[in-house]
Amino acid sequence: MSFIIYLSGEIHSEWREEIKQGIKDLSLDVEVLSPVTDHDASDAAGDHLGEESVTFWRDHKSSKVNAIRTQNAIKKADLVVIRFGEKYKQWNAAFDAGYCAALGKPYITMHAKNIIHPLKEVDALALAWTQTPQEVVDILKYTLQPY
């Protein structure tokens, strides 16, 4: 059994690399998709469409260009992992969770205990809540076992 996963959310830590390494260490047949994780590049995704004097319109253009990648990756994925970090509010990750819910796409969340309450609606539709990349790898290992 093979799987495609999309790793959504926080871009300021190495959690994606840890999941990829766990997949590699277990030789799991998993293709990993992700958003653009270079913050500056993501913010500038729409800059080629013309300069904007109002920040709202620059962000608006870039979010739409980024959505081309994000929406296609979520649709292609068998499972979406959505990471909420400590340092920044990942509103885009919450939006990805809502998009998954609307599509009926399975997703799991990854976040610390101290933000359980603000994420209660997001977690309510998740198929699992994890706190570490290893827990995600363990779920993948179990899911892909040929029982």
Rank of each mutant, 00 (worst) to 15 (best):
A97N: 05
A128H: 06
W129P: 01
D29T: 13
A67R: 03
Q145W: 02
N92S: 07
A124W: 14
Y147K: 14
L49P: 00
I74V: 04
D47W: 14
E52M: 10
K105R: 09
P106G: 01
A112L: 13
V54T: 08
Q131S: 14
L33C: 07
M110A: 13
Q71R: 13
K113E: 09
T55F: 13
S42D: 14
L127C: 08
A73I: 06
V81D: 12
D38H: 13
T70H: 03
I19M: 08
N66I: 01
S53I: 10
K24F: 15
D138Y: 00
E31A: 05
I11S: 06
D25W: 07
Q131F: 06
D47K: 08
N114T: 01
M1N: 15
L49K: 15
V65I: 15
K87Y: 02
V65E: 10
S27G: 05
D138E: 07
G22W: 10
L125Q: 09
I5G: 03
P133H: 06
K113S: 14
A67T: 08
L125D: 03
I82T: 15
D96P: 01
Y147Q: 11
I116T: 09
S42W: 13
L125F: 13
K75L: 15
K20L: 11
I23A: 05
Q134C: 05
A77T: 06
D29A: 08
F56R: 09
L140K: 10
P106K: 04
S34W: 03
G104Y: 06
A94H: 00
K87H: 06
L127T: 02
C100N: 00
Y6I: 03
K120D: 09
T109N: 12
Y99H: 04
K89M: 03
I11M: 07
V36E: 12
G46N: 07
R69N: 10
M1P: 11
Q90D: 15
N72Q: 10
I139D: 01
E51S: 12
I11K: 01
P118Y: 04
E17W: 07
Q90Y: 00
K75S: 03
K105Y: 08
A67Q: 07
L127P: 01
I82E: 07
T55K: 13
K87W: 00
Q134E: 06
R58W: 14
E52W: 09
D123C: 09
A93T: 10
E10Y: 15
I74G: 00
G9A: 06
H39M: 11
W91Y: 06
P133C: 08
K113V: 08
Q90V: 10
V32K: 06
F56I: 11
I74C: 02
Q90M: 09
I116G: 07
Q131M: 12
D40R: 11
Y6G: 02
A101L: 10
K113A: 13
K20H: 04
